[in-house]
Design a protein around this nucleic acid. Structure first.
Lengths: 207, 207
DNA sequence: TGCCTTACTGAACAAACGTTCAACAAGAAA
DNA sequence: TTTCTTGTTGAACGTTTGTTCAGTAAGGCA
């Protein structure tokens, strides 16, 4: 058996940003399917189809890679929500409900995604680099909610809360319900989750 | 240098339930201060002041020990909340607000406690034994909220939600705000958290 | 064509992991 | 006092971890 003159190349060189993307995707997939515990540099590289050494060639540490994944995923998620809201015509309340509905869409309401998020939250409490990503991400998210709630306040004022406070509250309610549902989907249906957020919204207006 | 006839005993025998308690306390302390990543059997035993072999003498695995800690801590926490509500006289709304205030008390609102809880939640998604504890714990918690909200419904009906749904919603709001605050205490004050939950409650009544 | 940069590989390393188990000794029982 | 039970110890084991780095080879350039 001869390798022949036209043996397949062992690997292909790629542009740094392409390789980084491959590593990030693989990391995300590992975190979602196997959890943090089983997400090792080896697992990531195997999933990405590269050798063990490549992670530390592109990132200072495994930690830095995960921080990059956090940033990317959070940005993508917010973009998805923004897009879905932008595709919705109507008054402020209608747009807010579109935001809520998007938050309870099947691709967001995924236990795998929660597994990833729990890893990020855990690292937020001990890794300054990840805490920085969390702070920026949470601020972006809340800013968009404040934008939507500001429009609502213009149409019908809610005297008991500031726009900032309302955004914090709705964000908390969405996050809390998201966590509970992913941890045990038997407890309530996504539609009930949407209903709960809608009642919060109307309770806000009623004052 | 002689050891002498009255050398100090190397260890003291203890009753199984006492030793288990010591191991659980040490595990809790490790999880809260160092996080899951750094909570090894060795760290736990060092904190408990015992040798490495003792964990596997009392528990089938490290996992079983953590499940025991989860059960104990969740029960203790709910008991604390129940006690504080029981110490409050007044109508249903007053008692519910006492529950909310207790949820935002300094000993509950602790990033160390969140670190522990995140570990439990993470394991809930991959370890059936821990998922079982989560399901029972969450049910207990919600049952108590349903009890309180049932009394509220008797005084002033809220037509848009069932008592069960209202309990799920308030639980989600409390959990969500708790997580966000622990991850970044700068975002809002505990008093604002209490206010947000109170507005939710009054919005429920207003219907 | 041959050179040269550098993306990429993968064996090697030290540290840390959960678990095991033969040996030890504390303290009650006889 | 001696015997016996068993709570407790801690060295040892086989894995797995993140990181390193000398070497390999892909692919643009002259």
């Amino acid at each position: 058996m001869s390798t022949g003159p036209t043996a397949l190349p062992k690997f292909r060189r790629q542009r740094p940003d392409q390789r980084r993307r491959v590593l990030m995707d693989a990391t995300l997939q590992c975190l979602a399917t196997h959890g943090v515990e089983k997400t090792s540099v080896r697992t990531i590289c195997e999933t990405a189809g590269v050798s063990i050494g490549l992670v530390n060639h592109y990132y200072a540490s495994k930690e830095a890679l995960i921080a990059d994944v956090y940033r990317q995923l959070a940005d993508d998620l917010l973009d998805t929500l923004k897009t879905r809201v932008a595709a919705t015509a109507g008054d402020a309340r209608t747009r807010l409900i579109a935001f809520i509905r998007a938050s309870f869409a099947p691709d967001t309401l995924d236990p795998g995604l929660l597994r990833v998020w729990l890893a990020f939250w855990t690292m937020t409490l001990s890794t300054p680099a990840i805490a920085a990503v969390h702070t920026r991400t949470y601020a972006d998210y809340r800013r968009f909610l404040e934008h939507l709630l500001g429009e609502l306040a213009a149409e019908c004022a809610f005297p008991r809360l500031t726009v900032r406070q309302a955004a914090i509250g709705l964000n908390g309610l969405l996050d809390g319900l998201w966590v509970e549902w992913c941890l045990n989907p038997e407890t309530f249906t996504p539609d009930e989750g949407i209903a709960l957020c809608t009642v919060w919204l109307d309770g806000l207006i009623a004052g």
